[in-house]
Simulated scan of single mutants.
Amino acid sequence: MAKRGAYAKGVVKREEILEAALEIIGQRGYRSASVREIADAVGLSPAGLLHYFGSKEQLFVEILRARDEHDSRQFPDAGFEESLVEIIRHNAQVPGLVELYTRLAAEAGDTEHPARAFFLDRTATVHAAAREAFLAEQRAGRIRADLDPEWIIRAGHALADGLQNAWILDPSIDMAADIERFFTLLRP
């Protein structure tokens, strides 16, 4: 029974850490926020904080996972296209998380990096949802029937990620508007 209580407390503390990290990194940035600052926000030492994640890299992966879970709850069931545009619009409000995502996405190219499995799983999940939505829209006649869903999904994903990279360099770019233009090109 004691293990159960300790486990439950550990889960709660881990969630507290992720909430603090989302806020701190979202507003201050990946490079400006330190493990010490996140640890201080939740009353832990840096070593104590990393105990919950194993490593700094795994902490960052879990921050991105938590960000995705928040986005899913904040922008539910509006339809794939609408949800994606709203998430991208929201991303402009949390520049540090966009920076963290782009950095870890690049580092995930290393087969040994802790973020690799996260990005592979995330891509499979996002592409499956996009495929389902795309095919439903094609059947309903709202997306051109001559378009190959797999190619459009890859191109759309590359566009979204590329826009985030460009936006980091030039925050005047309206990522959501560019994604909306892309969806317009898919219509009959």
Score class of each variant (00 low, 15 high):
Met1Gly: 08
Lys3Val: 06
Lys3Tyr: 13
Lys3Ser: 14
Arg4Asp: 11
Gly5Arg: 14
Ala6Ile: 13
Tyr7Gly: 07
Ala8Asn: 09
Lys9Asn: 11
Val12Asp: 12
Glu15Val: 07
Glu15Cys: 10
Glu16Val: 06
Glu16Asn: 08
Glu16Ala: 13
Ile17Thr: 02
Ala20His: 00
Ala20Lys: 00
Leu22Gly: 00
Leu22Ile: 04
Arg28Asp: 01
Tyr30Leu: 08
Arg31Tyr: 09
Ser32Val: 06
Val35Asp: 00
Asp40Tyr: 03
Asp40Gln: 12
Ala47His: 11
Ala47Glu: 10
His51Asn: 15
His51Trp: 13
Gly54Tyr: 06
Ser55Pro: 09
Ser55Trp: 10
Lys56Val: 09
Gln58Met: 13
Leu59Pro: 01
Glu62Asp: 15
Ile63Tyr: 01
Leu64Phe: 07
Leu64Tyr: 03
Arg67Ser: 06
Arg67Cys: 05
Asp68Ser: 15
Glu69Trp: 15
His70Pro: 03
Ser72His: 12
Gln74Val: 15
Phe75Tyr: 15
Pro76Val: 07
Pro76Glu: 03
Asp77Gln: 08
Ala78Lys: 13
Phe80Glu: 02
Phe80Met: 07
Glu82Asn: 14
Ser83Trp: 00
Ser83Pro: 03
Leu84Glu: 00
Leu84Gly: 01
Val85Tyr: 04
Ile87Leu: 05
Asn91Cys: 11
Asn91Gly: 08
Gln93Ile: 07
Gln93Asp: 15
Gln93His: 14
Val94Tyr: 05
Pro95Phe: 08
Gly96Asp: 02
Val98Leu: 03
Val98Glu: 00
Glu99Asn: 09
Tyr101Glu: 03
Thr102Ala: 07
Ala106Val: 06
Ala106Ser: 12
Gly109Ile: 12
Asp110Leu: 04
Asp110Ala: 05
Asp110Asn: 14
Thr111Pro: 04
Ala115Ile: 02
Ala115Lys: 00
Arg116Ala: 05
Ala117Val: 12
Asp121Trp: 09
Thr123Cys: 05
Thr123Asn: 10
His127Ile: 11
Arg131Cys: 12
Phe134Asn: 01
Ala136Val: 08
Ala136Cys: 05
Gln138Ile: 06
Ala140Ser: 06
Ile143Arg: 02
Asp148Arg: 10
Asp148Tyr: 06
Pro149Ile: 04
Glu150Asp: 15
Glu150Ala: 11
Trp151Thr: 11
Ile152Gln: 02
Ile152Tyr: 01
Arg154His: 05
Ala155His: 08
His157Pro: 02
Ala158Pro: 01
Ala158Val: 15
Ala160Phe: 11
Ala160Trp: 09
Asp161Met: 02
Ala166Pro: 05
Trp167Ser: 02
Asp170Glu: 15
Pro171Thr: 08
Asp174His: 04
Met175Lys: 01
Asp178Val: 07
Phe183Gln: 03
Thr184Cys: 11
Leu185Thr: 12
Leu186Lys: 08
Leu186Trp: 04
